[in-house]
């Protein structure tokens, strides 16, 4: 494992910890899209079914369990927690996320490395992860003001994607048989979706002002 991959995993983990911290400390999930969180839970469940079939390393297995457990915990809190669920911006979180699921499933059935149950689910999870942030970005855009923790959550998620791209570039040059175009193309699409957010995050950081997205 190279340093970029490790930093990517760590920034991914940090983003989830920030989100859990926000929900736990403020007992509020305002500004957070339940639809994006549900999509991530689905992404992890679909991709990490290989926990039962393939073993890569203790590190990989532990991280997979952490990602599945934390994403389910977040969805549970937003839907069921007596206090937290009251702060959910339901009327702003109207993205039709079922269409994303259907489109990604259709694409996975058409484009995958092998037509087996696990491989189709794996491709589906890669495609879905690429677009899962969309409901969250739409929600931020609609609410305009972004609180600190929510802004940092999205920032670290974007950093995770950027590190993974560096990781693929590194692997491309250091490994003899490195070709995983499904991951790489989807990863590039996913990172591109953050470009706009990063731009405004950088502006607010430079001006030392509150993060605001244009209407």
């Amino acid at each position: 494992m190279n340093i970029f991959r490790f930093l990517g995993d760590m920034t991914h983990l940090i983003s989830i910890l920030i989100l859990l911290l926000k929900i736990y400390a403020t007992k509020s999930c305002s500004g957070i899209s339940l639809k994006t969180q549900e999509l991530y839970a689905l992404v992890f469940l679909a991709r990490y079914l290989d926990l039962f079939t393939d073993f890569i390393s203790v590190y990989n297995s532990v991280m997979k369990v952490v990602f599945i457990a934390s994403s389910l915990a977040i969805v549970w809190c937003m839907r069921r927690h007596r206090v937290v669920r009251r702060s959910y911006d339901k009327e702003l979180d109207t993205f039709r996320h079922y269409f994303l699921v259907a489109a990604c499933l259709a694409l996975a059935l058409l484009v995958q490395e092998k037509f087996t149950f696990l491989e189709v689910l794996w491709a589906f999870s890669i495609y879905l992860e690429a677009v899962a942030i969309l409901p969250q970005l739409v929600l931020l855009q609609r609410s305009g003001n972004v609180d600190n923790l929510t802004g940092q959550y999205v920032f670290f998620l974007g950093a995770y994607r950027a590190f993974y791209i560096l990781n693929w570039i590194y692997r491309y040059f250091t490994e003899t048989h490195f070709s995983r175009w499904i991951s790489c193309v989807s990863g590039l699409v996913q990172t591109a979706l953050y470009a706009d957010f990063f731009y405004y995050y950088f502006i607010s950081w430079k001006n030392n002002s509150k993060l605001q997205l244009p209407a």
């Binding site: 991914h12 393939d54 073993f55 890569i56 991280m63 997979k64 990602f67 993974y164 990781n167 490195f178």
Partner: peptide
């Protein structure tokens, strides 16, 4: 790539 190492990322 060996079969079992194809999905070695998270």
């Amino acid at each position: 790539l060996p079969e079992e190492k194809r999905h070695d990322e998270l």
